[in-house]
Structure formats: C-alpha cells, structure tokens
Amino acid sequence: MMKFKLGSAYFAILGVITLAFGGLEVVTGLPGIEGLSTGALEIPPDLWRGIIIFFAGAFITAGAFKLRDIHGLGMSTFGSIMLWIIAGCDIFTRIMESIPNGAGGLNSLEGFLATYGPPYSPALFLLPFSLVIFYFIKEVEK
C-alpha cells in the first residue's frame, strides 16, 4: 500500500516536471524566441516536441493518483510511452551522428565520444526516471 502512495507522489512530481519542460519547449518553439541552454541541459526550440512532452507530462500526472488501478497505471504508462518516443529519437539521432566523421569515413574515438557529450534535452534526463513505471506494472500484474 505504502509503495503505491510513494509511487503516486513520485509520478505526480515526474509528471509535473515533464509538463513544465514541455511548456518551456513550447514557449521556446514559438517564432522569435530562442532556445535555452544552461549547463548540461538544453531546451530545444521545437513546438512539435514541446506539445508532445507537455501532454506526456499531463498524462503521467493524471494517472499518478490512481496508480493501483489499471486505468490510472495505463494513463501514466501511456504518457511515459510518449516521452520514450521523444527520448528514443534523441538517442537514435546521437548514435547515428556518432559513427561518420563528416568526410566519408568513420569517426575518431574522440569525435565518437564527443557526440554523446552535453548538452542534453529534457527528455534524455527524464527517461531513466520514467522507467520506474515498469516496477509498478509488475506489481499490479501480481
């Protein structure tokens, strides 16, 4: 029982953070506004991405309060899937960019590693935290 309460709080916070990042991406994606970059975090100025992350956050939060119920869990999982699509695309793009060196050959080791360096999009930071949903899926399935 306790772990579901903790889980609800965890996903409510994660959902709100996701929603906030989505909102920021929407704002930076509007014409005339530049993208934000602070340290290792970069908010890409992309309206399309922003809308998706915003809704992902909304769905994660909406499901978080009924995590024991399959419908609540389903809603949070549904939001997480949307977040995974965006983060998955970011990861795939980095992998693809890390291999060629831009002159028709393979990248050097430094060039390869540098592709994986910061800054990262919010989705890449949020992805590992959203994977906790698998624990609750297993718990509900039990």
Partner: peptide, 28 residues
Amino acid sequence: PLALAVLFGFWAFFGAFAGFFTDGFAVP
C-alpha cells in the same frame, strides 16, 4: 497527442537514418 508523437518519431527516425547514410557517407 500520441499520433503527434508517433509522427514525430517517424520523422526523426527518417531524418537520422537517411542522414546517416546520405550525409555521413554517400555525399562525401
């Protein structure tokens, strides 16, 4: 919103995959 995400994924995968072969190797 899910359809938007799937469409975004479709487009991003298309761009990264085709860019890898076309810009990374074929053009040079």
